[in-house]
């Protein structure tokens, strides 16, 4: 053990990089087709993430907030919190499973009670800022010289008009309380549909960056971090290209068969 510890400390980085590479390539194997290697790493991922979550719930929440007060400080009533939590597990016993609903109901109720604050803090500040000024004007100051309203240029006023029109149109699209027979409402809802397509385009474009950034991170790891351990970026890049070529070749051969 005494020899293992310094050895592990010395080789930790290299071992992490090799393990990481196997895991990355193992999961990338799904790009070829469904296979056993991918399933293996998928289960490894599931196990590791579950173990990590359980461990951290204990070390960061249950230990400091429940175990230490109960065991070290003698706060015996913390046992009640455990019992309340254990009521959830009655769900696994058919005869008394309904009692678990009392715990679940209590937490559901608490979440519902909190929803009012969430709604007010989240949406109320957005309501007044949805009513934007539409008439261009100079900056307005009060008698003491304090700025009351910022200057509004003509382009800004047009932008505000566009904003408010889109807001109303999209809201009218979701107006299901009455049948949309009215011509104005119908047209407005139709325009709202177009505006949502516009928005979905913007969201799609943004999403692309998020996903690409992740892949860059992984390929950076393979080519730069792992590459430096096997003779340089060029070697890993060539190896990657070889793997891609092999996958394409295998895929075409199986397609022909």
């Amino acid at each position: 053990m005494t020899e293992f510890s310094p050895w592990l400390a010395e080789h930790l980085k290299v071992m992490s990089i090799w393990l990481g590479t196997f895991c990355t390539l193992g999961l990338f194997s799904i790009l070829y087709r469904e296979n056993k290697l991918y399933r293996f790493f998928e289960h490894l991922f599931l196990g590791i993430s579950m173990g990590y979550l359980m461990g951290n719930v204990w070390t960061d929440t249950l230990r400091p907030k429940w175990w230490i007060p109960l065991w070290d400080k003698g706060e015996w009533w913390q046992a009640g919190v455990l019992i309340f939590g254990l009521f959830y597990y009655l769900i696994f016993f058919k005869k008394v499973s309904w009692i678990a609903r009392l715990s679940i109901g209590f937490i559901l109720g608490a979440s519902s009670g909190l929803a009012f604050q969430g709604f007010v803090n989240d949406y109320w500040p957005q309501i007044p800022t949805s009513f934007k000024p539409l008439w261009p004007h100079q900056a307005i100051y009060d008698k003491t010289g304090l700025l009351v309203s910022k200057a509004l240029s003509v382009p800004d006023a047009i932008n505000n008009l566009i904003f408010m029109t889109i807001l109303v149109c999209v809201m009218s699209y979701f107006f299901f309380s009455i049948e949309q027979n009215n011509r104005v409402l119908k047209r407005s809802a139709q325009a709202g549909r177009w505006m949502m397509m516009f928005t979905f385009g913007a969201i799609f474009g943004s999403t692309m960056m998020a996903r690409i950034a992740l892949l860059i991170d992984r390929l950076d790891f393979l080519v730069n971090d792992f590459g430096s351990h096997i003779g340089g970026q060029g070697v890993m890049f060539t190896l990657l290209l070889f793997l891609c070529g092999a996958v394409i070749f295998l895929a075409q051969r199986t397609d022909k068969e």
Partner: peptide, 14 residues
């Protein structure tokens, strides 16, 4: 083949 597209993406990034 979709794998050709994947390869293009890997090349584009690396």
């Amino acid at each position: 083949d979709r794998r050709v597209l994947y390869t293009l993406l890997i090349i584009a990034i690396t």
